[in-house]
């Protein structure tokens, strides 16, 4: 199995020529996507707790909203990576 894998990677590098299999930009895009996924997962728990709190007391809407979107900062920070990574061309 490992032999096959090694073969595959050699073919991949050969067909790609001097280009890497995945460009730096697309790697950064992947990072943003994963961060968004994590933020979504975090918001799932916070969101349901916030809705529970709001159901009990309408005044908690503001607090609930802020706490719910806090994990979005993860995505914003990950977005920075896209600009930091240099374009290969």
């Amino acid at each position: 199995m490992f032999e096959n894998f090694a073969q595959l990677t050699t073919t991949l590098t050969q067909t790609g020529g001097s280009m890497p299999a995945i460009t730096p930009k697309s790697a950064a895009a992947l990072a943003v996507g994963l961060a968004a996924l994590a933020a979504g997962y975090a918001e799932r728990g916070i969101g349901s707790a916030a809705v529970g709190a709001i159901a009990e007391d309408q005044d908690l809407f503001g607090t609930g909203l802020i706490l719910t979107v806090l994990p979005e900062t993860l995505v914003i920070l990950a977005l920075v990576v896209v600009f930091v990574v240099p374009t290969p061309f």
């Binding site: 728990g45 916070i46 349901s48 707790a49 916030a50 809705v51 529970g52 709190a53 159901a55 009990e56 007391d57």
Partner: peptide, 14 residues
């Protein structure tokens, strides 16, 4: 189990 939702409501009532 949806602990988050129920616990938030219950805590408020508590």
């Amino acid at each position: 189990a949806n602990y988050e939702y129920v616990v938030a409501r219950v805590r408020h009532r508590r």
